[in-house]
Design a protein around this nucleic acid. Structure first.
Lengths: 209, 209
DNA sequence: AAGACAATTACCCGAACAGGGGATGGCATC
DNA sequence: GATGCCATCCCCTGTTCGGGTAATTGTCTT
């Protein structure tokens, strides 16, 4: 079986280079190229791909449109973003759109070849700089400390409040009385220094519940 | 220069195996091992390390304690978590604690050797399964689309609701009447298909307000 | 110009909520 | 066996919220 691959890249020179890299990573690959969103979407309309290298900054839009189209046509398609933009917005946007990898084109081709090869084995291709950035993001959003020493039951109640349940609904799911729920909420309010359930919901999501 | 490395692992057999892997990845390394938190902390008290392989589930606590101690003694130390636990809590906890990598020990040793080698070149060592999990996390938290075509005013009100303000507080900050605020909230509810302000708060944070 | 539509503002009422009090039983620690 | 913490329940009072209804303005279409 040969691998149907799509390379979306506006600059001709870069497009050739990526094709070279692709051919080296997988000689059996059947390579199709597109210089812009329009042609890429036209091709994707009547053809299915297994792997795609997608540039983001294209003259007629963002490569993410194509990525979504490819994923819709074939959810198993491996869509790898290959760009020179390493800013947070681009990375997060690409991952949110369903990208299976994020490679920076300012890397030695040998490294790109290796990462594309690994992709086929299920290893998510992430350029080192991108991996570091993602981990740093977790380091900032991760700290789930400051638990405000809530009791397990309080944490549980707060979790349901954060999901938008009413007191009587929480009571029903936990099998306790509504008054009890209200009592737990009161102590949560006291411990968190708040006085409304919207604030409670905010803290709940912040505490990862 | 030789690389001062610490291997923290409770099971003797696994400790030997990791030492083997380490020696193969970097023959010049000067390897120190510890079977539990206590001895690891004692060693870290009078010795500085450049690289550390840290297990999480230890008999006398979590390896993250040691990780933090090492990072405090030498912020440039490369602390890599090496464990068999791949659950979200462990991964996020480790990254939040400042881990520079996360490796699963149920991988072929050749892969581990390669990833440890790459670590020294600045490539964050992440096992494929872990990288996928992290990316999936982004895929869930990232989507800033699905704006539910809220009007600017509604978005503004929703933002304040999400911060936990009451209707009259929102009214005061926006310089409008409380009834107006209530009306905006109602149309927001209709558009988002919800019926309580806790759910509204949830959506507000999700929409990044 | 006339009509359609969305956004913004406003009012009323019943239901839900916040926060204060106090009470019971269980479980641990001391 | 005394103390403290937790979870569970109840009452009460004032405030807030949610839903129905409707007027005003501006924009866009017809």
């Amino acid at each position: 079986m040969n691998l149907r691959t799509l390379i979306l890249e506006d600059l001709a020179e870069m497009r050739l280079w990526l094709s070279e890299v692709m051919r080296e990573a997988c000689p059996d690959a059947e390579i199709t190229t597109a210089p812009d969103i329009r042609t890429a979407l036209a091709i994707a309309g009547h053809e299915v791909f297994d792997l795609a290298l997608i540039d983001l900054g294209l003259p007629d839009g963002s490569g993410l449109e194509v990525l979504r189209a490819l994923k819709q046509a074939n959810p198993a398609a491996l869509c790898v973003v290959a760009t020179i933009m390493g800013d947070d917005a681009s990375v997060v946007g690409a991952l949110a759109a369903g990208a299976d990898g994020y490679l920076l084109k300012n890397q030695p081709s040998a490294l790109l070849v290796r990462q594309i090869r690994q992709t086929l084995d299920g290893v998510p291709p992430l350029s080192p700089a991108i991996a570091r950035r993602i981990m740093t993001h977790f380091r900032q959003t991760g700290p789930v400390v400051a638990d405000a020493n809530l009791t397990p039951r309080e944490r549980e109640v707060l979790g349901h409040i954060g999901k938008g349940l009413r007191n009587h609904e929480v009571a029903a799911t936990l099998g306790i009385g509504t008054n009890t729920v209200a009592a737990h909420i009161k102590s949560v309010y006291a411990k968190l220094g708040i006085s409304s359930r919207a604030e409670a919901a905010w803290h709940a999501t912040k505490l990862g519940l």
